[in-house]
Design a protein around this nucleic acid. Structure first.
Length: 264
DNA sequence: ATGACAGTTGAAAACTGA
């Protein structure tokens, strides 16, 4: 069972890259962020032609998340609680049916596009922290189910200094501030395992490289896309890795996919 | 010190992103 997350930076602008990635890597579940299109504009036919069920929580121009699954799924939530005035499409949660030999199991997944929060002296940073608290609260509720759950996506959080090429230069950024990291740890401390860090604690492995200033060529990257596993999912974790190939292709997203393999 | 890159909107230049 391969679950991948990929911030595509516009699904319509990236459709060729995304379809090629799906064909080459064959994830069973793909969590997409920054699709930047409404549900009506979602390129459903091309994706379904590759054998995926597709659900989206889209928005015109900005944000937008989606879940692709090879097997049937049902949507559980289209937003986090506690955000009545929040119009931004940043959350989608589904339960996926997983064939495991003689019987089917269920895996809960969420596609998360956590706010960036810059500039930190604007209203955007408190919005980020409030959104993280809403996520923490919901993540706590999900643990009570005691089911395998993967909360994956673009967290816009650099968890530690080993997850950024220039820790000093980024210390005051919304992605790295102590408050941001502490809120992220609060979620982990509920009982979630950050899959990549568990299997690759060495650090300096990135999922994002800015388009500017030759960041990709110089490996000036950030690790901000994460897969958080409930205890029941972490028990099944076999592999986790960052797939740098899509970032090296023509017209790439500035993010690259990260995936994990679960043996449910 | 500044801008550098890419996408969206909408038809130029502003806004957003990380």
């Amino acid at each position: 069972m391969k679950i991948a997350t990929f911030n595509v930076n516009s699904l319509r602008a990236r459709i060729a890259n995304v379809l090629e990635w799906l064909r080459e890597e064959q994830p069973d579940v793909a969590l997409l962020q920054e699709i930047k299109c409404s549900d009506a504009e979602f390129p459903r036919l091309e994706i379904e032609a590759l054998g995926y069920h597709a659900e989206s929580h889209g928005q015109k121009s900005y944000n937008g998340v989606a879940i692709l699954s090879r097997t049937p799924m049902r949507i559980e939530h289209r937003a986090l609680g506690g955000g009545d005035a929040d119009e931004q499409a940043r959350y989608l949660e589904a339960v996926v049916e997983v064939p495991t030999g003689e019987r089917w199991k269920q895996l809960r997944v969420a596609s998360i596009y956590l706010p960036n929060g810059n500039p930190v002296d604007s209203e955007k940073y408190p919005y980020k922290l409030a959104w993280m608290e809403r996520l923490r609260s919901h993540a706590a509720d999900l643990l009570q189910l005691e089911h395998p759950t993967v909360l994956g996506g673009d967290y816009n959080v650099i968890p530690t200094d080993k997850d950024v090429y220039d820790p000093v230069g980024w210390a005051g950024d919304a992605l790295a501030l102590p408050q941001t990291r502490a809120k992220f740890r609060e979620i982990l401390n509920l009982g979630y395992t950050e899959a990549f860090n568990l299997l690759h604690p060495e650090g300096h492995r990135y999922t994002f490289w800015d388009y500017q200033a030759g960041a990709w060529q110089r490996d000036h990257g950030l690790r901000i896309d994460h897969l958080l596993l409930s205890p029941q999912a972490a028990d099944c974790l076999e592999k986790c890795d960052i797939d740098k190939k899509p970032r090296a292709k023509d017209k790439p997203s500035d993010h690259t996919p990260i995936w994990c393999e679960l043996k449910l």
